[in-house]
């Protein structure tokens, strides 16, 4: 019997660490001492917010909108967490970028009170969406309508959970459906460059083409 794919979805419950930064130097020191969970929340989990804001992680957003250090915000925004094997390496890249900036502009201004950077962590709750699919055609129907948090959980969060920079979808396509070309095509999507809705569109387009190809191969007219 074919092993089905169960769509799960998630929410994050925000937890304060009680730590904050008023200046770039403080931000640098706090990033150096923050828990992995906190770094993960402010970088990887930023994708759950759906890119409503200008930059691509909380540190860049704060540097740009609160400190008005826009050049730095662009540099921090260009750090793609999915380019790194683990949170520690992402942390190092942020520290390196901040150190470089501080060596050129050693006296950045503090923020106005109340606008400090607040370090948070999360507790993630994962639960079944009630959607389970057995083949690619069913997957195509489901991917169009599942909650955005399902896309986050299976496409983004999976990369840390599986530790291989792979996502849940392609693992299923590879191990259960033996769809190697489909796996290559989905893995070629750059997770950093899309919103969750953008990811939905990309996957839908690729899977749709694969389903049509299968139908044509089987002699079924679409």
């Amino acid at each position: 019997m074919v092993q089905s794919f169960e769509f799960k979805q998630c929410i994050t419950l925000l937890k304060s660490t009680g730590k904050k930064a008023c200046t770039l130097r403080e931000l640098r020191e706090r990033i150096a001492g923050a828990s992995d969970e906190s770094i993960l929340h402010h970088t990887y989990q930023y994708f759950l917010k759906g890119h409503i804001l200008e930059y691509t992680n909380d540190f860049a957003q704060w540097a740009g909108s609160s400190l008005e250090e826009r050049a730095l915000a662009e540099q921090l925004s260009n750090i793609d967490p999915y380019d790194y094997d683990n949170v520690g390496n992402v942390r190092s890249k942020f520290l390196e970028t901040l150190d470089q900036y501080l060596s050129t502009f050693p006296e950045p201004r503090p923020v106005i009170p109340g606008d400090e950077f607040f370090f948070n962590e999360t507790v993630m709750l994962i639960y079944p969406s009630g959607i389970r699919v057995k083949n690619l055609a069913e997957f195509l129907m489901a991917i169009k309508y599942v909650d955005k948090s399902s896309l986050y959980y299976h496409f983004y969060e999976a990369r840390q959970r599986l530790g291989s920079n792979h996502d849940d979808f392609t693992v299923w396509f590879e191990t259960v459906l033996a769809k190697k070309d489909l796996v290559y095509a989905i893995r070629a999507i750059d997770p950093f460059m899309h919103t969750l809705e953008g990811i939905r569109e990309q996957i839908t387009r690729i899977v749709e083409a694969e389903v049509q190809h299968d139908m044509a191969f089987a002699g079924v007219e679409s």
Partner: peptide, 21 residues
């Protein structure tokens, strides 16, 4: 309501960063 219950459930499972229901 979801979040209040999640905090309560998280307090019961203190120390876990991921909770699967």
């Amino acid at each position: 309501m979801r979040d209040y219950l999640a905090v309560w459930y998280s307090a019961i499972n203190k120390g876990k960063e991921t909770l699967e229901l």
